[in-house]
Write a protein that binds this DNA or RNA. Structure first.
Length: 712
DNA sequence: TGGGAGTGCTTTTTT
DNA sequence: AGCACTCCCA
């Protein structure tokens, strides 16, 4: 016990040993948030205040849930296995599986991932004869998800114009189709679980009384529905322990409501707010920069990180001539650091958008520096894996049209678009699934589709008694998938991934042991949907880490490079154009990026950058101005004179149009102020230039004959 | 059916 | 620029 609480600082100790009250823990970056969370659970259990059975801990990512489970089991000698520790979606899935009947779902209901959802919406639009240009499927998905995340069903949606009217109708159709097929998208897991508890009093009471302590990680990332779900579960006297950092809220764009923290404060615990402000990660200068930046945000709950680790090194700033030049600088620095003994895995290059990784990768590759890029296609999202899963889904639930369409003609078996159109029409008319409607097809289509149906039936019979990994092996082979990839030129890797899928199933069976409702196959499919898998190869290699700032949240490195710090890129122009809220979110993003660094932080920008196939002329990010000068060490003292190493491009296109005005030239306009010429057109009297005046006047085309531009 | 050409989009992302 | 997606033809 004393061991458990040893080495906690006073606020940490206070948070961990709080009596059974609602509490909000404002945990700054690197302040030991996960430690407090897990120790709190361990303390509650080991002091006998609650059994493992009475605790629920909710996170956002599987990774966080796993880490919490691992750390908890190291702290208390209990079996952590059966505890309700997981993601919002994972826990809702668990609850819905246990009460599928009450929730109105088939026992083996499947989970649609975002790609499946998109496919379903597209299919729906086609069936309903709706123009997908006027109603873009992606937008519709967002519309549907946003409504579900607000807890709003199609029937309750607000309609304020014709366009929305139509979108709500599509939403309603989508709901109906999901119900017909017995599938749930991600948001549906939460909403359905919420509605189930709300509607079903005995069930609600049961869980309300069961969970005495509910702990939430990354509370600033919760959306409306998640908060409502928590409130509902806590309605029977459970204590909510919310840990979060409003300064690290960077997921507004996908529905996170920072406002939930304020609401939580109001709704539950005006008196029990604890701030964890001592940072154990970064040196003083890094924290000073982070604090200075985030201070520009308004409406913060207020927090100031400090450390007793000393100031450390100054923050290194570098202004490159081009993105290529920037990459060269970063890679050279890394090579030097590695030569000096810094492990490559402790060097991270962060960027605002993934497109920026290309140039960096190119340079790393050229110089022979091993690197690993995070983000991108994950294991369970690979097409061959999704194909295999689709066959498996059909075994469990033939009504799953998404799965049906995915593999009905893959590998090809002569079922063309025409046959499928007929089939979809028939299904629509019979109000049944495609699988069911197949029997009604006549002629050639009837034969080919019939053969497919028989294939699935045969597969189901043959695999009925087999253990999970063998089911998959059998299906992969007999469906023709394996043969298809054997014959494909580049199919080797795909075959390996299919083998890996079988391995994953074997591991899953070993790990999970107890198989939930609906059998091993259903559990595994849910697992595949909910955990798309950090199943990436090349783990543990000595490699430089490349990732977006978002992806870096929660991680830390000795050396961090934040690249592309240019106005319009970081802060991103789309965010800036959203106004103050947008800019503030960018600032939080910058705050997250800065606080990833333990020892040394590099900030870099480029004067020109290739973006969307065009050279852009950039000014340094406004975030540079928000960092006190004395914290910065400017690495390129050489003035920003036209570079001899100008990367080769851009020079040609920047011939002066008149009076020495050329692309890249900074100019001043009497009305619009300072700007940079980004494009030119014509010569002499007809010459026009496009000038970027930044936030104020924006982009303007000006005729040189009339507009007075002074080079600066 | 399948591939080649043409078209359009392009912040961040977990479940 | 690079990628995904569609369309059209052999």
């Amino acid at each position: 016990m004393s061991d458990l609480l040893a080495n906690l600082n006073p606020p940490q100790l206070q948070a961990v040993t709080l009596p059974p009250v609602h509490a909000l823990i404002l945990a700054g970056a690197g302040s030991g948030k996960t430690r407090v969370l897990t120790t709190r659970i361990a303390w509650l259990i080991s002091t006998g205040q609650v059994g493992p059975h009475g605790v629920m801990a909710v996170t956002f990512t599987n990774k966080a849930a796993k880490e919490m489970t691992a750390r908890l089991s190291a702290l208390v000698p209990i079996n952590v296995r059966g505890m309700w520790i997981g993601t919002f979606h994972g826990l809702c899935n668990r609850l819905l599986r246990a009460h599928y009947r009450e929730a109105g779902l088939p026992q083996t209901f499947q989970i649609l991932d975002s790609a499946d959802q998109l496919a379903m919406v597209k299919r729906l639009l086609k069936n309903l004869n709706i123009d997908d240009e006027k109603y873009p499927p992606r937008e519709l998905c967002h519309f549907i998800n946003a409504h579900k995340e607000q807890g709003v069903r199609a029937g309750q949606a607000e309609v304020y114009d014709h366009y929305t009217q139509k979108r709500v109708e599509i939403y309603a159709e989508y709901e109906a189709q999901c119900n017909r097929e017995g599938v749930c998208d991600f948001a549906e897991l939460l909403l359905r679980c919420f509605e189930l508890l709300q509607r079903n009093e005995p069930l609600r009471t049961h869980y309300q009384q069961r969970f005495r302590h509910i702990l939430v990680d990354e509370f600033q990332d919760t959306n409306k529905l998640q908060y409502a779900w928590l409130q509902l579960l806590a309605g029977g006297g459970a204590r909510l322990f919310a840990v979060g950092d409003d300064d690290q809220s960077i997921y507004r764009f996908r529905g996170a409501e920072v406002g939930n923290m304020r609401d939580f404060e109001r709704d539950y615990c005006a008196d029990n707010i604890i701030r964890l402000e001592q940072n154990y990660r970064s040196h003083g200068n890094i924290l000073a920069a982070a604090n200075a930046i985030i201070k520009y945000n308004r409406e913060r709950l207020g927090k100031n990180l400090w450390t007793d680790a000393g100031d450390g090194e100054p923050i290194r700033a570098f202004e490159a001539y081009s993105d290529i030049d920037e990459a060269r600088f970063i890679v050279d620095e890394i090579r030097e650091l590695v030569r000096d003994g810094v492990p490559a895995t402790q060097c991270a290059i962060l960027y605002r958008s993934n497109a920026q990784s290309r140039v960096l990768e190119h340079e790393l590759f050229t110089k022979g520096v091993p690197y690993k890029v995070y983000g991108g296609l994950r294991f369970f999202e690979r097409q061959e894996v999704k194909h295999a899963l689709a066959y498996l889904r059909l075994l469990g639930n033939p009504d799953d049209d998404t799965a049906f369409l995915r593999v009905v003609n893959f590998p090809t078996r002569g079922i063309g678009a025409r046959s499928l159109e007929n089939l979809q029409a028939a299904a629509h008319q019979m109000n049944s699934s495609l699988y069911n409607a197949a029997a009604s097809l006549t002629g050639k289509a009837g034969q080919t589709v019939g053969a497919f149906i028989r294939l699935v039936e045969t597969l189901r019979q043959e695999t009925e008694k087999l253990p999970l990994p063998e089911i998959i092996e059998h299906v992969v082979e007999k469906s023709g998938l394996a043969q298809h990839y054997r014959l494909e030129k580049e199919g080797q890797e795909r075959l390996e991934n299919l083998d890996e899928l079988i391995n994953a199933a074997a591991t899953f069976v070993d790990d999970e042991g107890a198989i939930g409702e609906g059998g091993a196959l259903a559990s595994f499919l849910a697992h595949a949907s909910l955990e798309s898998g950090e199943h990436q190869a090349g783990e543990g290699q000595e490699a430089v880490q490349l990732m977006s700032v978002h992806a870096a949240k929660g991680l830390e490195f000795d050396i961090v490079f934040i690249s592309g710090l240019e106005q319009g890129l970081f802060p991103h122009e789309n965010a800036v154009s959203e106004g103050r809220d947008g800019l503030e979110e960018e600032r939080r993003l910058m705050y997250v990026a800065v606080t990833r660094a333990r020892q040394r932080l590099y900030l870099s920008c480029a004067q020109t950058r290739m973006l969307h196939g065009q050279t852009r002329y950039c000014t340094a990010s406004s975030f540079f101005d928000e960092i006190p000068e004395e914290l910065l060490l400017k690495l390129n003292k050489k003035a920003a004179a036209p570079a001899p190493t100008w990367g080769g491009y851009a020079a040609a296109s920047s011939e002066p149009v008149a009076g020495g005005l050329r692309v890249g030239q900074s100019v001043e306009h009497a009305k619009f102020g300072l700007g940079v010429i980004v494009a030119t057109e014509g010569r002499g009297a007809d010459a026009r230039v496009q000038v970027n005046f930044g936030g104020g006047a924006g982009m303007k085309w000006l005729a040189l004959e009339y507009a007075k531009l002074t080079p600066v």
